[in-house]
């Protein structure tokens, strides 16, 4: 919670808002496999982009940080895909 107080409250507001929209869409279209996969892909890309932009604004964007957000995003998509498809 300390992050919320100290760093970029707008960034975190955007993150929570984006994740809220992602969950809402996933719930509404849960019976449409193709759409659910696209929503998961969108959610993962949104998080990767959020992380990169947020760290760029903080002026501490390194190659490792970019890789970290990409890995978390891919992990997120892979995990949701396996449950959606099977």
């Amino acid at each position: 919670m300390r992050y919320l107080e100290e760093n970029h409250i707008i960034d975190y507001f955007l993150l929570f808002f984006g994740l809220g929209v992602f969950l809402f869409l996933l719930y509404v279209f849960k019976y449409n496999t193709t759409l659910s996969l696209f929503i998961s892909l969108g959610g993962s890309l949104f998080y990767m982009l959020w992380g990169i932009v947020h760290h760029a604004l903080e002026k501490r964007l390194h190659r490792e940080i970019v890789l970290e957000y990409i890995l978390i995003g891919v992990f997120m998509f892979a995990l949701l895909s396996v449950v959606i498809i099977y």
């Binding site: 919670m1 992050y3 975190y12 993150l15 929570f16 994740l19 992602f22 969950l23 959610g43 998080y47 959020w50 992380g51 947020h54 760290h55 501490r60 390194h62 490792e64 940080i65 970290e68 957000y69 978390i72 997120m76 995990l79 949701l80």
Partner: peptide, 15 residues
């Protein structure tokens, strides 16, 4: 010197 653990935690909770 890493990304935000709190953000990762929140996003995985959402997942």
């Amino acid at each position: 010197l890493t990304g935000h653990t709190f953000a990762h935690f929140v996003v995985l909770l959402v997942v």
